[in-house]
């Protein structure tokens, strides 16, 4: 584990509701987590489970139709409800983002150099020349060949993987305390994904940046995350150290996600991938019940009558917690 010291980012009881034409939609419900410097926390779940909304709410990037309550603390600074100028000083400088699609996330009409220097010049008092020199350094840092000449190139002149490196360089420009990476490798070729993940992991460790990695890809999680937060329908259903959670998942949703990952050998055994039946529900309000009950093989009346708390189950160590009335048997799931 590379994580050390006090959490740099503390999220407590985060709730996000969107006003829509069909009434309010609850996207995130009582989400809490900590991230420490140098640590990689993966937030995992299917589409629509609230992971991206959680990510965007950290620096107040949600549209005006969203209502955010709870607490997001960056060291000692409360970000929920903070005025816009305060948030602008935090964005890019303390909390930086890397998004999914690097082609559309970079502005096509500006050179990558000018997009990196823009971040620098918003937050630091640098001359144009100093900022450009720093941009070249950053491009070198993220492994872009001949950075001094590439700094004047436009996004369309880079390959997908290189563009994502530019995004990472831009995000790291001001040496942020927290880097939020929202599906950073989803749009990339498989061959490039590993390189970009290694880069993130390596830079996070070297610079002591806390990384919140949003993904639906458990392969990515296994590669670089220290801890995992599994979300379902806006709630955290299970959280724990990566290895432990992979070895002994307690929540049936986590179990289902792991069952849906193709692994070598399983095909040979004649098995087919296990999908989780049904879809993530759209919730107008969060029910006092387990939201996964409708899709859960172990659900019973208790699950539909009350929401299970996120707490240590059975003999699990305290760091591994699941929100389930009938957690999967540790012995059964161990070493699947």
């Amino acid at each position: 584990m590379t994580a050390q010291g006090e959490p740099v980012l503390t999220v407590r009881d985060l709730r996000v509701t969107f006003r829509t034409d069909d009434g309010p939609v609850s996207a995130v419900d009582s989400v809490s987590f900590d991230v420490r410097p140098g640590e990689v926390l993966a937030v995992v779940g299917e589409s629509g489970c609230g992971k991206s909304v959680t990510a965007m709410s950290i620096a107040g990037l949600l549209p005006p139709s969203a209502t955010v309550t709870g607490s997001v603390r960056l060291r000692d600074q409360e970000l929920v409800g903070a005025p816009e100028p305060t948030l602008r000083r935090v964005r890019g400088a303390e909390v930086a983002y890397v998004f999914q699609e690097p082609m559309t996330s970079l502005n096509p009409v500006f050179t990558v150099g000018s997009q990196i220097t823009e971040t620098l010049r918003i937050h630091q008092k640098l001359s144009r020349k100093q900022a450009l020199a720093r941009a070249v350094e950053l491009l070198a840092l993220v492994g872009i060949p001949s950075p001094a000449s590439r700094v004047g190139a436009y996004p369309h002149q880079f390959s997908g993987g290189m563009r994502q490196r530019v995004m990472i360089a831009m995000a790291l420009a001001c040496d942020p305390a927290v880097l939020v990476a929202d599906e950073p490798t989803t749009a990339l070729d498989v061959t490039v994904q590993a390189a970009v993940l290694d880069l993130l992991r390596d830079l996070g460790t070297r610079l002591g940046t806390a990384i919140v990695l949003i993904t639906h890809d458990l392969g990515v999680v296994a590669d670089i995350a220290d801890r995992v937060l599994v979300m379902y329908a806006g709630r955290v259903v299970e959280t724990g150290p990566t290895q432990e959670l992979f070895d002994a998942p307690r929540h049936h949703y986590t179990l289902g996600l792991l069952g849906a990952v193709p692994t070598a050998g399983r095909r040979a055994a004649g098995g087919r991938l296990q999908e989780i039946p049904g879809l993530v529900p759209v919730l107008h309000e969060q029910p006092d019940a387990c939201t996964f009950a409708e899709r859960c093989p172990a659900a019973d009346e208790q699950c539909r009558a009350g929401a299970p708390a996120l707490e240590p189950r059975d003999t699990d160590p305290t760091t591994h917690r699941a929100a389930c009335w009938h957690p999967a048997d540790a012995l059964l799931t161990k070493g699947r």
């Binding site: 620096a59 990037l61 602008r88 000083r89 935090v90 964005r91 890019g92 400088a93 930086a96 983002y97 998004f99 699609e101 559309t104 996330s105 970079l106 502005n107 096509p108 823009e118 971040t119 918003i122 937050h123 995004m167 831009m170």
Partner: peptide
């Protein structure tokens, strides 16, 4: 998407 990126940089609404 690049507008989201610009906002995530801390750019002012004017920029």
């Amino acid at each position: 998407d690049y507008i989201r990126t610009a906002r995530a940089k801390g750019a002012s609404p004017r920029a």
